[in-house]
Amino acid sequence: NQESVVAAVLIPINTALTVGMMTTRVVSPTGIPAEDIPRLISMQVNQVVPMGTTLMPDMVKGYAP
């Protein structure tokens, strides 16, 4: 099972992602793959992401799977 990126904290809208904001977990449905965390650093979320929420591609500005 592939791990997906999950919010480790509440991430406010338009916040640039940092390593500490993200964790990984096997979830269903799957979100952004864990191995993409290095690509996500400094990208901004386009909505509020509650802690424990799986990051989906459409939540991150400029992210393309």
Rank of each mutant, 00 (worst) to 15 (best):
P57W: 11
L55D: 00
T24E: 08
A8R: 08
T30G: 05
R25D: 13
Q2Y: 05
N14G: 14
T23H: 15
D58I: 13
D36P: 00
P12D: 11
M51F: 11
Y63L: 13
M51W: 06
I11A: 00
T23G: 12
E3C: 03
V19E: 14
G20W: 12
L17T: 01
M22C: 03
P29A: 07
M51L: 06
N14H: 14
M22I: 05
G62L: 07
M21I: 05
P50T: 14
T23M: 08
G62S: 07
G31I: 04
N1Q: 10
P57N: 08
I32D: 00
M51R: 14
I32V: 06
K61Q: 11
V19Y: 11
A34Q: 09
M43Q: 09
Q2W: 04
V5K: 00
T23Q: 08
M22D: 02
T53W: 05
P57R: 08
A64Y: 05
V5E: 00
P57I: 05
A64C: 06
G20C: 04
G52S: 15
V5P: 01
A8P: 01
R39Y: 13
V6G: 02
V27T: 13
R25C: 03
M43R: 14
L40R: 00
N46F: 07
T23I: 09
V5T: 12
P50K: 04
V6I: 13
L40Y: 03
V19W: 12
M51D: 08
T54D: 01
S28D: 15
V60H: 01
M21D: 05
S42A: 14
S4T: 07
M22N: 01
M59Y: 14
G62T: 08
R39W: 06
V9T: 13
R39A: 06
P33H: 09
A8T: 13
M21Q: 09
P65V: 10
P38D: 10
N14A: 15
P29Y: 06
T18N: 11
V26M: 07
P29D: 15
T23Y: 10
S42I: 03
V27M: 13
V27A: 13
P33N: 14
P50A: 15
I37E: 04
K61V: 09
P29H: 05
P65A: 10
T18A: 14
E3F: 04
P29S: 08
E3K: 03
A16V: 12
V45S: 06
L17I: 07
A7V: 03
G20D: 05
V60I: 15
